[in-house]
Design a protein around this nucleic acid. Structure first.
Length: 428
DNA sequence: TCTGGGGTCCTAGGACCC
DNA sequence: TCTGGGGTCCTAGGACCC
């Protein structure tokens, strides 16, 4: 069994922990730049303030009902999140931190609804954050159970155990397809065309038809919905693939210099981030965007991506490249609303040993150096275990631009990463 | 006039290889 | 007018999530 623990109105709840006077009052938290409402307390939801609403559209309601408005404070939220997660970690054998306010738990066999309620109370008592817990046999069903727990909080008390409920099909029938994890507006529309409107319809649909119209994603959901687990619990967060930094301008920008300045800022932030993770970027993308909401104005949203000359996380180097890219896509005469940079194809800094492939002639690696290293590792230089090796030729396939780590995988016997030299192979 | 900022995965199609 | 059959890799774009 899997449980999904989800913090209620997380950002608002965090603000309340540090200001209890806000209890029972309508509050909202804003996106970066204070543009949109991204978290609402129950009271704010009751006032009809929609998720993601532009702040300027809600001024009326906010004034009228004295809604308290907060800029977001991610440092605070990150800290509160860590507290919640550490409690969860001590309660169950395995947890996957899915987002800042959600975690999947692998439940021990004896875990029942009562224990879930106890856990919920504990989190509330220790952190001040209310959560909902949904239990299901797969991640998708746990999500669905959680949704039900949250939607019917008065009835469920914030905990819902789908498999042990007397009428699970009734719950599925009450869940529209776009309430399913992974089904958004577009897929819901596609499903509706096939006559599939609820989770129950989906569960009983023809898998071949699902596969045809929604690909493997749809088929996975179909199986998960039928209790066949396709989505593993990911205890270790996978390596980050890219890091982006972007911002909207308060008012549109036309000049190159202002864009350069903004971009330099973004590059600095992105660079900082990858250094913190111990990563190097091997690629970069820079983009510009005009105001997409202004249909009356000329639109131009260019982007350009390149492979870097060498992996780096040095700000100066990144900035030079970013600036170069900016100049390539910049056109005067537009009112730019947003710009950003993405550092792509990140590789680990630690153990990143470019020397062999980079120093050696293209298509060739330095076997002597490998032999030396092996003998050094084996510990007796006077009596080397290995004196020679047959020359290995790296297949210099297309796309091998010197630094692309991928192509090295073709030749595992001659890996350049000492830590990955297989010991058994050394002996032979 | 204002209307976020991050991410991931999948697919189709083109370039290129043998 | 006909003009193969396999692959791989990369990119753009779409869809989704929080």
């Amino acid at each position: 069994m899997i449980a999904l623990v989800d913090c209620n109105n997380f950002f608002c709840s965090c603000e309340r922990v540090f200001n209890p006077a806000l209890q029972g009052k309508p509050i909202v938290v804003l996106s970066n730049n204070d543009g949109c409402i991204i978290s609402r307390s129950e009271e704010a939801k009751a006032l009809g303030i929609p998720m993601g609403a532009p702040l300027h559209e809600q001024h009326e309601v906010i004034r009228k009902h004295d809604v308290q408005v907060f800029s977001s404070n991610y440092t605070l939220y990150g800290d509160m999140s860590a507290r919640v997660m550490s409690i969860l970690r001590e309660e169950v054998p395995a947890i996957e931190v899915y987002s800042i306010d959600e975690a999947f738990l692998r439940l021990p066999g004896n875990f029942d609804e009562e224990m879930a309620r106890t856990l919920r109370a504990k989190i509330l008592q220790w952190t001040g954050i209310p959560v909902c817990i949904g239990i299901g046999s797969t991640k998708l069903l746990a999500k669905l159970a959680n949704r039900h727990a949250k939607k019917n909080k008065a009835l469920t008390g914030g905990v819902f155990d789908l498999p042990r409920y007397w009428d699970p099909e009734g719950i599925l029938a009450d869940t529209p397809t776009d309430g399913l994890w992974g089904v958004g507006r577009n897929l819901a529309a596609r499903l509706a065309k096939m006559g599939i409107r609820t989770a129950l319809d989906f569960q009983h649909a023809d898998p071949a038809a699902i596969r045809k119209s929604m690909g493997v994603v749809g088929e996975r959901m179909f199986r998960e919905l039928n209790g066949i687990a396709c989505l593993e619990l990911e205890e270790m967060p996978p390596d980050r693939k890219g890091v982006m930094a972007s911002r909207s301008f308060g008012s549109p920008v036309e000049g190159l210099e202002e864009l350069e300045e903004a971009l330099a800022n973004h590059v600095a932030r992105a660079g900082e981030k990858i250094r913190r993770f111990g990563l190097l970027a091997t690629g970069m993308e820079v983009f510009l965007q005009t105001n997409r909401f202004r249909k009356d104005q000329a639109q131009y949203s260019p982007g350009i991506g390149i492979t870097l000359d060498r992996p780096t996380n040095a700000t100066a180097e990144l900035m030079k490249t970013a600036n170069d890219l900016l100049h390539r896509i910049y056109r005067p005469g537009y009112r730019y609303k947003k710009t950003g940079v993405q550092l792509t194809n990140l590789v680990s800094e630690e153990g990143f040993q470019p020397s062999l492939f980079d120093q050696a002639k293209p298509g060739r690696i330095d076997v002597d150096k490998i032999v030396d290293e092996i003998n050094r590792r084996l510990g007796d230089p006077k009596n080397p275990m290995i004196t020679r090796a047959s020359q290995g030729t790296e297949r210099a396939g297309k796309g091998n631009k010197g630094w692309k780590m991928k192509s090295e995988r073709h030749s595992p016997h001659y890996t350049t990463d000492w830590n990955q030299l297989p010991e058994a192979r050394v002996d032979s």
